[in-house]
Amino acid sequence: MSIQANTVIFLMGPTASGKTDLAIKLSQQFPTRLISVDSALIYKGMDIGTAKPDAETLKKYPHHLINICNPEEPYSAHDFTKDAKAQIKIAFEKGETPILVGGTSFYFNALEHGLSTLPESTPESREKFNQLLRKKGVAALHHDLEKIDPKSAQRIHPNDAQRITRALEVFDISKKTLSQLQGNKQAGLIFPIKKIILMPPRPELHARIKRRFLSMIDNGFLTEVKTLKTNPNLHPDLPAIRCVGYRQAWQYLNNKINLEEMIDQAIIATRQLCKRQSTWLRSEKDALTLETPDIAKALEFLEK
Rank of each mutant, 00 (worst) to 15 (best):
E120I: 03
N233D: 03
L100Y: 01
D264A: 13
I268Q: 13
I66C: 04
P203L: 02
K60E: 12
F191Q: 03
K304H: 15
A91P: 11
H157Y: 12
C69W: 02
K44A: 05
P62V: 02
A51Q: 07
P150R: 00
V170D: 06
P14Y: 13
E204M: 04
I156F: 13
N70P: 00
A140K: 11
Q186Y: 00
G49C: 14
G183I: 09
Q28C: 12
N219C: 12
L181W: 03
A139L: 09
Q251Y: 06
T117Y: 08
D21N: 11
Q182F: 06
H78M: 01
Q28S: 14
I267K: 10
K136M: 02
L222K: 11
R134V: 04
P71A: 08
L290H: 05
P119N: 01
D294C: 08
Q131T: 00
P200N: 05
L281S: 08
P71C: 11
S39A: 08
D237P: 00
L65N: 09
D294W: 13
D144F: 04
A55Q: 14
S278L: 08
F301P: 00
S116E: 11
G137W: 07
Q29T: 10
K304S: 15
I90D: 13
Q272V: 12
A207P: 08
T57G: 02
K256N: 10
